[in-house]
């Protein structure tokens, strides 16, 4: 399967494709990172997971539609940067924190702020759990997996995109209320 087909397959929601790619390159990346950068197996694994998340999210956001090199080269290049971040003693490479980069860029270096952000993120995560389905799935599919209203309607058997749009708004209101009650 070519890289373009792989990307299209992942974009259409194929988890098995993602799993196959993840498993295909993992062992080699870990061995390479440990040998080349002297990191521990756990650090190498964390870097690989971060690399895979970026690969996945860029596909879902439409930022990655084709590769100039291979999937392996892409994963190794991103993974290498993650290893180097660890080596430089950059702030904790926490997967959830990166989501703040556009919104809270100017406050990134304040460790107290970062700690508060983490607490807030965990609070939202807990509130999402409390919401349950369908809100949990609608919000996650839209905001994280970047699925369109039409795709969600089809996947979750709703009448149309408009129905999903109204439901999403109600779910956000419920989430906001739950989080507010916890703070």
């Amino acid at each position: 399967m070519g890289d373009r087909t792989i990307i299209e397959s992942i974009k259409s929601g194929s988890e098995s494709e993602l799993e196959a790619i993840y498993k295909k390159h993992r062992q080699e990346f870990i061995a390479w990172a440990m040998k080349s950068y002297g990191c521990s197996q756990e650090q190498a694994n964390d870097a690989y997971q971060a690399s895979m998340l970026i690969f996945y999210e860029n596909i879902m956001k439409g930022k990655l539609t084709e590769l100039s090199s291979s999937v392996k080269t892409y994963l190794f290049a991103v993974g290498r940067n993650k290893v180097m971040e660890q080596k430089r003693g950059a702030r904790k490479m926490m997967v959830g924190i990166d989501a703040h980069e556009s919104y809270l860029q100017d406050r990134k270096d304040d460790s107290e702020e970062v700690e508060q952000q983490e607490e807030m993120l965990q609070l939202v995560e807990n509130s999402m759990e409390e919401l349950g389905d369908p809100c949990h799935s609608i919000l996650k599919n839209y905001y994280y997996h970047k699925q369109s209203m039409d795709e969600i309607a089809q996947k979750m058997n709703y009448k149309n995109a408009e129905t999903v749009k109204n439901l999403k708004y109600k779910c956000i209101k419920r989430l906001r209320k739950t989080v507010t009650l916890k703070t």
Partner: peptide, 19 residues
């Protein structure tokens, strides 16, 4: 903004758990 970040964080955590 915090809610949207939190939802993405939840999605990522689920992905990491899957991995």
């Amino acid at each position: 903004g915090i809610l949207f970040d939190g939802i993405q964080y939840t999605g990522r955590r689920a992905m990491v758990a899957k991995m």
